Simulated assay, not measured.
Amino acid sequence: MLYKEMQDMKEGAAFSRRFAKQQLLTTMAIVLSATLVFILTGVVAPGIDALGLAIAAATGFTIGVWCQPNVYRRQNGSLTLAIVLIAGMWAVPVIVILVSFFG
């Protein structure tokens, strides 16, 4: 009985470590990609206000869904809502770019 409990505790601790590592890596990927895109957008298109923030937010969310899709799944296993949110977030900077070029 004691051996089984110790084994369960070891497995639980290992699971917690893997989960924490995965969360850390995902967070780093989101922050680094959003920061890189924000800086790059500021260099490439410095005159368009708030474009960097819109693209950084869309990039961060996209990377988050790509790294951990199970977090964003609905109860039936669908990623439809996450994909619609990603499309909406990317639509904002695209509209801003189109308006700045043609408007």
Rank of each mutant, 00 (worst) to 15 (best):
M1E: 12
M1K: 11
Y3R: 01
K4E: 01
E5M: 07
Q7R: 10
D8T: 02
D8V: 09
M9C: 01
K10G: 03
E11G: 04
E11Y: 02
E11L: 09
G12R: 08
A14I: 09
F15C: 06
R18D: 01
F19Y: 07
A20F: 04
K21T: 11
L25F: 11
T27H: 06
M28V: 03
A29D: 06
I30S: 10
S33R: 12
A34Q: 08
A34S: 15
V37P: 14
V37F: 12
F38E: 07
T41E: 03
A45D: 08
A45E: 07
P46L: 03
A50N: 12
L51A: 01
L51C: 10
G52K: 04
L53E: 07
A54G: 08
I55N: 05
A56Q: 01
A56Y: 03
A58E: 05
G60D: 03
G60T: 03
F61Q: 06
T62K: 06
I63R: 13
G64L: 01
C67P: 02
C67R: 04
P69R: 09
R73D: 00
R73M: 05
R74I: 00
R74V: 00
Q75M: 02
A82T: 11
A82I: 01
I83Q: 14
I86P: 05
I86K: 14
I86C: 14
G88R: 13
G88W: 15
G88T: 11
M89W: 14
A91N: 06
V92F: 14
V96W: 13
L98W: 14
S100V: 04
S100K: 14
F101W: 15
F101A: 11
F102Y: 15
G103T: 10
